[in-house]
Design a protein around this nucleic acid. Structure first.
Lengths: 197, 197
DNA sequence: GTCTATAATAAGATAGAC
DNA sequence: GTCTATCTTATTATAGAC
């Protein structure tokens, strides 16, 4: 994660802040420079273009997101536990790195065609992990047999949305929110007839 | 809903298309004019500014959304049915007027302070209807006693997200998707102990 | 109600000094 | 690695003819 130790990271941190607050297009290189304490021309020493700066943010976020999920899933054995861990991991990451994740979900259109494909492929790989858990759960009779793709989108967007409204100084902390979502989703995925547990 | 019968509506329809495809900031008045078959200066005869055009789109969308929900809820009596109807109504409206709704959820930052407050107030009123159903459901023991606000955000963002990926020529039609969401949410809201139904 | 022409401004990016 | 100065281009919006 970027800290303020060198200018390249400072610029990135400032850009994340501004892209989150105002959006990518509404943020100018001048503003990023002002926030970083340098002149706008100096930005181009560190990043070849505004678009490359955005790409750099999104790439790091997606890589860290997937690494975090895999790390957390290593301990989970049965299917329900895997889904619980996956949801918790997703919510936690999105709440703790709220700004980057919000950008990763709202500013994909700012990317070049090539960069867009790279990020979307990373996102697909991540989604695939969730879809496999749902599919396995349906096969083993733990989850209901609704449409796997739709449910994975539903679950992911549900948790992702947390990043849009979460207030770090609000009523509930990260783990409390993650647990509410976790219960909601496990219930939602349960078979409708009766709870066989 | 705007049709192509007069220039003011044509401009609005073209703008919705472009704001959805490219985003508000990435869309220029020139492009909207080109799509409408007039010169860019002529846009200003119909709308005083680009921001007013955006506001006009968002205002119509929010008003129609709330009217549609109230209309649908008029028939529903018990709480579970009310939630089913509300979810179905929300999903249906968001899938059928996908572009406007996507804009209404992603381009609020493009508004002036005054217009922003008007739209957010309309959104709060709409959310309030959902929160009341959840609260009543919890009081009567139909739904679990989780946090009302969190759950209403969860439900709304869940359904709203449909608008972001729905493909009108895709595998599933509007009603099929709405029903999947409906079941998921009713299960998710159910009490965790055992299904008392 | 739509046009042409243009004003006013701000953007992303580069050149070259230090 | 950061600066000043500048190029190029695009933007929103207005003035005034038709």
């Amino acid at each position: 994660m970027p800290a303020g130790n060198n200018m390249k990271n400072t610029i990135k941190t400032v850009a994340i802040d501004l892209f989150f607050k105002k959006g990518y297009y509404a943020t100018s290189i001048s503003e990023i420079a002002r926030g970083s304490g340098i002149q706008k021309a100096s930005i181009y020493y560190h990043y070849p273009s505004k678009e490359e700066l955005l790409f750099s943010i999104l790439k790091t976020t997606m890589d860290d997101l997937t690494a975090y999920l895999k790390e957390n899933l290593a301990d989970a054995d049965d299917i329900e536990m895997q889904m619980r861990v996956a949801v918790h991991s997703h919510v936690r990451f999105h709440l703790e790195r709220q700004k980057e994740n919000f950008i990763a979900n709202s500013e994909l259109r700012g990317l070049s065609k090539e960069h867009y494909h790279i990020i979307v492929q990373k996102r697909d790989e991540y989604e695939c992990i969730f879809q496999n858990i749902i599919k396995q759960g349906a096969e083993k009779g733990v989850f209901s047999e609704e449409d796997t793709k739709i449910l994975s989108y539903a679950i992911l967007t549900l948790c992702t949305a947390g990043a849009a409204w979460f207030n770090p100084r609000g009523r509930l902390n990260v783990d409390e929110i993650a647990t509410i979502y976790e219960n909601f989703i496990i219930s939602g995925l349960g078979r409708k007839e009766a709870d066989g547990k």
